[in-house]
Design a protein around this nucleic acid. Sequence first.
RNA 1: GGGCGCUUAGCUCAGCGGUAGAGCACUGUCCUCACACGACAGGGGCCACAGGUUCAAAUCCUGUAGCGCCCACCA
Length: 905
Amino acid sequence: MLDKVYQPREVEARWTAAWKAAGVAHAEAGADPRSRYVIVIPPPNVTGALHIGHALNNTLQDVLVRHHRLRGRQTCWVPGTDHGGIATQNVMEKQLKAEGRTRHDIDRGEFLKRMQAWTAECKSTIMGQLERLGCLLDMGREAFTMDDVRARSVLHAFQEFAKSGLIYRGERMVNWCVRCGTALSDIEVEYEEQKGRLWHFRYQCPEGGGIVVATTRPETMLGDTAVAVHPDDARYKSLVGRALRHPFLGRAMRIVADTYVDPAFGTGAVKVTPGHDPNDFEIWQRHKGEMEGPIRVIDFHGKMTPEAGDGFAGLSRDQARKLVVERLEAEKLLVRTEEHRHSVGVCYRCQQPIEPLLSCQWFMKMRPLAEKALKASEDGRFKLSPASWDEPYRNWLKNIRDWCLSRQIWWGHRIPVWYCLKCNGLSAGEPAMSQSAWRDSKREMRYEVGAQMPAKCGGCGSAEFVQDPDVLDTWFSSALWPLSVFGWPERTRDLKFFYPTTVLVTGYEILHLWVARMQMMGLWFEGKVPFEDCVIHGIVRDRHGKKMSKSLGNVVDPLLMMDKHGTDAFRFSLAMQAYPGKDIPYSEDSLKGPRNFANKIWNSTRFVLMNLPERPPEGGYRLDRLDKSRLELADRWILADFQAMSARFEERMAAYEFAAAADEVYAFLWDEFCDWYVELAKPRLAGEDADMVRTILVQALVGTLKLLHCFMPYITEELYQALKAYAGEDAPLLLLSKPPSLREWAAPDAVERMRAVKDIVTALRTVRSQFNVPPGLQIAAFYSAKDASARSLVADNLSYILHLSRLSSLEASEKRPPHSVTTAVGDLVFYVSLEGIDIEDEKIRLKKEIGRLSEEIRRCDERLSDKTFMDRAPQAEALKLRERCRQAAAKKAALLDILKSLEDG
RNA sequence: GGGCGCUUAGCUCAGCGGUAGAGCACUGUCCUCACACGACAGGGGCCACAGGUUCAAAUCCUGUAGCGCCCACCA
């Protein structure tokens, strides 16, 4: 016998093991390719334990995998992890910091060794957590973005791109994170609105006069080489071409005209710092002849360089700013300062301000790839869900810019580029390989691409090379994920069978960072989209919509939630709120309903089992053995309702409407099956229909469990096992059984009639409640019917009504019996016998109800007499309205009658 | 500066052209022999505001206000 309350713990451990042993998660290449259902996991970074966002993401994937597995698809869900580049290196650097060291205190090899150890530990934690969540991942396929197979994919892709001329080394303005010590791509920079100031100061002309510029970063003026104004700006037209003198450095500068300048902002004159501002860099490119080029005054550590001049060199950016302002003031050049809000670029990993710096990096031309991806999106080969993401996605592709591929960190795929020492004039053991010097190198370099050091230089024949010290952006390997997990570029069986995959499930925050790049790579190399559908879900936030963060203390720990409330409840709490593309407000309270629901399922099965014989009958209780002609209203109704619900369920699943699908089953099981059918089954289980009722209980319940399984795998498996023999099934696991039958049990008449019975019962219960009749007390009631059909509604379903309304009797009576209260339902009037009721109270109650009905009739009449409505509205609408009006009028008349008799005494 | 989204019951959100829904919270009666993680009944909404389209609008269109997100090189 099952416990009274569902205890998830032991059940979960048991089924995790059983699924694994049975290998239900495993898929082999082969068989019918149309039956494939393939998902690659968005690989979590190996930065630590999984958070609730991962739980959501993986729950939704598992829902899809289990759903399709049960329906006979050959599902393959590929697990894996991402080395995570900067993010993971930061974790390790924090660990080192705790030991009082930095990565430079241990060498690169030692550092990588420690990373490997950490990664191994982290991977097993993550896989364990995914298993705990119930994920049906094909564990034998576990991949890592930096393992040998994936390294080959990365190398191949890099070589191919290099061959096609898409990859190039160039000196560009990059987003430099001083804290992380590396360049970042444009999409790795986040912007924060900050309070700042705008300083207005004057540059003097040697021959007198000058021009006032405005800046938010005074310290960069040490690198200024020009001032720009708009060519049409009347205020400055005469000044264009004039010379200026840098007040601290004595440098000669020039006023140039450039349309980039907005005359309306600040003073309409912009100081130009080509070495530390991407726009200014571009201004210089347009005015090379008129002005000096970039001067680096801030170094890669955020300190002022010697070129910043005496007194400034060696200062931090903040110190330099202070000093610059002081000296401007001292020289009476500072005109004024004002408060100013502006957005500041910060590192997406450490939130420190980004410093735009000029350096040598590897870039990739993206336009040719983006064009293919754009086309795939526009012609429908690739669909985002919800589709509202299509526009932002396409716009991003249309405006794509070159991708800065190199990162000055150690953790990642080393850039497979070898520089010839001789040709490039480098000395062996190159001390200049210290990273900042390397990045300053402006020379054209001769290099070879490959995993290993080349045997001979193609130019000079030398065999001495040095490898580029940088690594690739972590997203480069992520972009290849759907290919690399199947062994690409090898033409493996897996690649041929499982690529392209079916669907990708991810959050919108990495739509560009990851999704778009996978599309581009997949299309470029294989000519096919890597996945046809992409399901975009939201972010899990706290209950008030704030982002979860450790510092806010509003994080919800998935493991703790699973421990406390059960994995199924946890999964359901996420899925039931997963409306397409919407963020999910979440707190521990969100688990309460789902936890109760799990218990409800548990107990409804417990009830059914209590009413089954110890041994299942031969072949089980099967629907196809029922004598359909003997089915009662409730039987036909619940089967029809199940069919209708499961059809809606399938539709919602097909549209990735997880929350709506979950709600369908929830409502069916609780509000229909438990609240009505089970209640009606109780008395019948003692009668001669018992086996028929058992059949329907078992089949409806098993069907529901099967639909629910993808959301709540553990409890449904446990209960399925207890029920399966009774259902005449012998599958070892729920997933290996037949999906719920979609056989035609539709019965609109039964649904309609059951609706009427429910209305009667509810009305009678309401009366009981209004007069505080204890549930245990059975009372007598009478009814009068308007016509034969109304009479048969009661007569045919007398036992239902007696049982559900807890009546001792229900007899026909044309007149109101004494000591009774009246209620009207449809074309019926009921009199419920109650001792000691106050006639005055009853009159008031009736008047109130009559008033309500009058109002309804008035509203209906109003519309029915509206000529334009009658002319233009569909006929069905008018019919519906007329019927509603008729019923209300009948009720009102009946109640008026009673009221009159009461008033007459 | 563009683009997208949100504003519905105390809270969190569904619904997106035909009489307002769910979960949680709340009130009343009940430990009715599956479940008090329960049953039954109930209270509670000018569906942000202003216009428009329509026989009919929470639902479509336009505008306004507030909030949020994404993108963008404004010093």
